[in-house]
Structure formats: C-alpha cells, structure tokens
Design a binder for these strands. Structure first.
Lengths: 341, 341
DNA sequence: AATAATTCCGCAAACGTTTGCGGTGACGTT
DNA sequence: AACGTCACCGCAAACGTTTGCGGAATTATT
C-alpha cells in the first residue's frame, strides 16, 4: 500500500539494465547509446521519476538547503526578509528551512542544532533578544558552515553581516524634525542592551546636538510599544513638558503616541510632529499618515542570501567577513510635515 | 580545510571499534558493554557529534520534514499560519520547508516538485489565486504523501482541509450591522471566482434577506483593496446612494472606506458603520478602531499541522479525508457600535 | 588475420547510518 | 572433556545515487 516513490532502480529493473546506466542516461552521459538513453528517459517521464534529493545530498555532501533562524515570523519586517530570502534561494535552486526562535535563547540553540544535523549548506541568522552567549553560533563557523547575520548580529562571530545604518537613519529622522522647526524633540527608545536601541538613540543625540539644541534627559524615555508610549505621553502632560516633536524607535510606538496625543486634544503634526521607525505596514493607515524610516526588509533578505550563496558556492573561500550596511529611507508623510497634499 | 562534520566512523576509528558498535552504544543498546558505551558517549560529546539527518532520512525513508506551500509570506494571516505550523512541528521534532508560490500557478507546480524531490513526510498547501488545474496536487496523494489544505483548498483532491466558515462569519458580521439598526448595508466583495468571495457574499445576503431588508444590487460592489474602496465610496456619494453600513471583505478595504468616508465629512460609525474581515493587525490602529472578523491564522496553522502529523505518524491510515471548519470571531469595536467605552 | 580503437555497459565503492545475523571468547554446567 | 550459555562485538546489506574503472562486444586499422 505504502508505495514509495519510484527510484532509479525501478527503472533499471524494468528495462533490464543497471542502475548506473540509468543514472548516466538521465544525465546524457556520452557512454550511453541513443537507444537506451531514449528508453530510459521515456520510462522515467512515464513513471514521473523524481531524483531522490536525500540520496543526492548524502552522495554529494551538500543539501542545497539553507537554514534561517529568525526571532518571529509574524512581523512585517521579518516576513519581508524571509520573502526576499525565499525568492533568491528559489532562483538558485535552493530550499529554505525556517526556524523561529520566538526570541528565546534556548530555542535558538536548539534551532542551530537541528540545522547542523540537517547538514544545511549555509545559515542565515537574526539573533533573539535574549541571546548573549554565542557558543552555538560559533559552532556553525567551527563546522565551516557559511553564516550570514542580518539585522541583529552577534559580535565577535566570524560571519558576514547585513545591517541597516540605524544611527544614520535615526539621525536623518531627527534632523527632519529639526528642519521642521521643532525645538523640543523627544525620543522613545528601545532597550539599551540592544544594538539598535543604542544606535538609534545615538543618531537622535547627534542630530539634536548638531542643531545646537540642548539635550533634555526628561525627553528621552524607554518606550517601545503602544502602551508605554501612551504612558510616556501622559507623563509628559502631567509634568508639563510636552515636546513639539517625537522620534520613536518603531511605528507602533509612534502610533501609540499619536493616538494618545490626539485623544488629549493636541494636533499632529501642528502641535507635535511624529516620526516612527518602520515595521512597514501601518504608515498609511493612521490619520495623519505616519512619517517613518523604511527598513527595506525584502532587500535585506535578498542581499543576505546572495552573500550566503556566494560563500556556499565558492570553492576556496578565504575572504574575510564582510559587513554590508543598508541605508534606511526616511519617508516623510503627514505626521511630521505641516504643509502636505 | 573543508573539515566536514564528525561522523560515527570517525568515532569508531579513534576508538578502534566498528561503526555498528558506536551506533549501538549511542542508543544504549544492551549488547554494548558499559565500558565501551561510556567511551563512545564521551568521545561523541567531546567531538560534538551530531547524527547526520540526511543519512538517517535515507535509511529510515522519512525525513521528518514537512513542506509548506503558501501564496505569500508577507501577509499577516499567512505568517500567523506559518507561525502555528512551525510551533507544532518544532514540538514534534519536525522541520519545516517553506515555499511561496507568489500567487503563481507555475511556481506552485515547481514547489510541489521540489518538495516531492526532498521526500518530505507531508505537505501543507494553500493554493494560489491562479490555480485551476490540480494535477500537481494529485501527484502528492498519488505518491501517498499526506496532504492537508488550509484556507484555500483544491476541490476534488483527497486531502484533509481546515477552513474558516466564511459564510457564517460574513453572516454574523452583517447581522451585527442589522442589529445596530442599519437598513442600507453595502457589501464590498472579493472576486467571485474565489470561494471566499462567493461565501462571504452569500453570508451577507443571507443576513440581509433574513432581516427582511430588500437586496439592493447597487450596494454590492466588487472592491477588495484600499483604492477600490475609495472609488466605490465616491461613487456612492455622487449617485446619492450612501449606505449606512458596510461589510467589507477584508480590513484594508474597510479602512479605505473609512478614510474616504471621513474625508468626505461623514462620521464613523454614526453615519456609516463598518465591519471588516481581518488581516489581523490593523484593527486597533484606526480611529475609530475597526470591527472585524478574526480568522485565527495561528490556530489554523496549529490544527492543520496536527492533522498532518496524525496522518504521517499513523501506520495504517484508512481514514477518509476530514474537513475541519473553524469559526471566525466577530470582534466588535468602535467602527460599528455607537455606544462604546 | 591479428591487433587497436571505439562503443557501450556493469561492478563496486562511496556518502552515514541502522540492524539482522553470525562469530568469538569467557564462563558455567554436565 | 564436551557442551550450552552468555556477553560483547563486527560483517554486510540496505536506503538511492554517482562515478572510476574495467570488461565485453563491435568496428576500424594495420
């Protein structure tokens, strides 16, 4: 009942030839006569023969599979990255195994183990928020498996990296607010143990100081989600230190701020101008539409995979790890610009 | 240089025993003496031995991999489904290979081919919009590979299905509008060649007629995105047939309607009440927040994968194809209810 | 007619692992 | 002394495929 899929042996048996002959016939080897070549190919087509990729992997010592470890799939940015990865891999004849760490260190370690066990040809990683120990990632490079980090990288591990210029993008976003004439610009920051948290704050500070605006510590708060943004705004109000501009570390935080601001009777952008950092989908929906930094997730997936494939396909790879920095694009919409269509 | 990963043979050689002994030692086979068992396990741990999953797959004729074919990853609903799939698979010790069809028939066919070549143990499919021919899917069942459809199913193919009760959810959504006292309820529909398009419209019609409201053909328009919703609203206005309620086939359409309605000076929900059909993320962001049908993508992924795993693990599987219907949950928010918090 | 060249194909090993079967000692039992 | 019983381990085949090598049959060359 459990008829497994047809193999080269089945074809060989039916035709009274050896498996080697069938194999060679299928790859147009010159040692095979036109007659048997045709017979083999016809029968193979008729039986819908599909080469067993598992056997090929074992034989060739390569699986044509690349592994991906990602914090969470349900996230516009990450799913865009995956989409880019999948597209490039598909065109190169590679398959993609997806593992999500769910932002858990233990699961990330486990993911690395299974990908190594699967003997994937290369691995793409964006580390979880919990990850501080990098031994499991070191195992990858110790086994000579090409490794490329995207977005969230592990310091000290010998792998290519493709990241966004967070500092610069944050600088641009903040400078835009300055150019709109804002003088009291707040920053809603991500946790400072995350690199992106540090760098976005750094860009914010650079733009502020460059403009000669004094840094007000009360305007820099750690808030990276809807609810914390709401609380931060309420605190601004009760302390009587409402800013006239806010650069938020991501869109959902900016939206939390916007909705609270509006509910409290202020106007966006007239009273307070807002810029977010894109998760990509929300920007057009709010009223006014939200200015934001486009992180180009799809392109990041493309580039990371191209870097990885190059490492995989290169026979003698002595190139040093490469770091590719993508520029975030500031998209100016209604939330930060007074005169707009 | 290219030191490949350590195998059972390496351990055997270093210890001067046979590969079989190492294999048995690693699985605590009683034929192995405590002494060598310990020696083997120690060395294996020291060398960080990882069983080669490829060789095991070949040997055991199962890969512990399940394949997923999905129209697009960058879509809240689908990425939620993937997340559910991945979670269940992970807990059962299975890996997941993701293929996206990008809504293209040819690519879907190609995806099936590679998954069969990879000898995956089972396949989860949500078919592309273009797919009318199901031969490639028939190939899956012909090869006795367990197959489960989710959300978008292929008629006539012998596989389990897990779908949402679109008709009923649409009925509930529309009835909710009726209960809010609306008399002129419009429907923004999906293309009618899609099953979901038909069924949601059917549910809408059922609720309308049940309430004794005459069906007005001018209020049923094919509009399933932001822009077409905008155009439809403008047409309602110019024709002087503005409805007092709208059930839209998805959230983005509902949002397009909402923003146009508001820009034209009408109030939501006072003048026009709105209900969408959830892509999941937007609902809380609009002003007012959007009533919508929750499609439970994550749960759908969980259930579909559980059904698939059951088929995979069952030795003698004579059960007929099963159809699991999930109920969509109408979430009532500000866009359709006048009195709310 | 003998040899050389060519055409076409099969054997067997290899990839890493599991597993049925058989074998070798060491020991205990008659 | 002869046999049985264990405990422990290795051989070899198998999974599906590729590929170097050798071999047989045919054809071409002297």
């Amino acid at each position: 009942m459990k008829s497994s899929q047809v193999t080269i042996k089945d074809i060989a048996k039916q035709l009274g030839v050896s498996a080697s002959t069938v194999s060679r016939a299928l790859q147009d080897h010159p040692d095979i006569s036109e007659e048997t070549r045709k017979a083999v190919n016809d029968l193979a087509a008729h039986l819908k023969y599909q080469p067993n990729a598992v056997a090929l992997s074992l034989k060739h010592q390569r699986t044509r599979i690349i592994g991906v470890i990602i914090p969470e799939i349900v996230h516009y940015f990450f799913s865009s990255v995956i989409s880019g990865i999948e597209d490039v891999a598909y065109n190169a004849g590679f398959n993609v195994i997806i593992c999500q760490s769910n932002e858990k260190f233990d699961r990330e370690v486990s993911n690395v183990k299974t990908l190594l066990a699967q003997r994937v040809d290369g691995i793409l990683v964006s580390i979880s928020k919990e990850t501080n120990d990098y031994q499991h990632l070191q195992n990858i490079v110790s086994n000579n498996i090409p490794l490329v980090f995207f977005d969230r990288v592990a310091p000290g591990i010998k792998g290519d990296q493709v990241i966004i210029n967070d500092s610069e993008a944050a600088y641009q976003a903040t400078r835009h607010l300055v150019e709109q004439g804002r003088k009291r610009i707040a920053h809603f920051a991500a946790p400072q143990n995350l690199l992106i948290g540090q760098q976005r704050k750094e860009g914010y500070l650079r733009a502020i100081t460059e403009a000669g605006i004094p840094v007000d510590g009360r305007l820099i708060v750690e808030a990276d989600n809807f609810e914390r943004a709401r609380l931060a705004i309420m605190k601004f109000i009760s302390n009587g230190i409402m800013p006239d501009g806010i650069f938020a570390v991501n869109d959902i935080t900016a939206i939390g701020a916007m909705k609270t601001i509006q509910k409290q009777g202020y106007k966006v952008p007239d009273d307070i101008a807002l810029v977010g950092f894109s998760d990509g989908r929300f920007s057009g929906i709010t009223e006014p539409s939200l200015s934001s930094v486009d992180q180009h997730g799809y392109e990041m997936g493309i580039i990371a995979t191209e870097m990885l494939l190059r490492r995989i396909l290169e026979k003698n790879d002595f190139r040093l790890p490469e770091i590719k920095v993508l520029e975030g694009d500031l998209i100016i919409r209604g939330s930060s610009k007074i005169q707009f269509f």
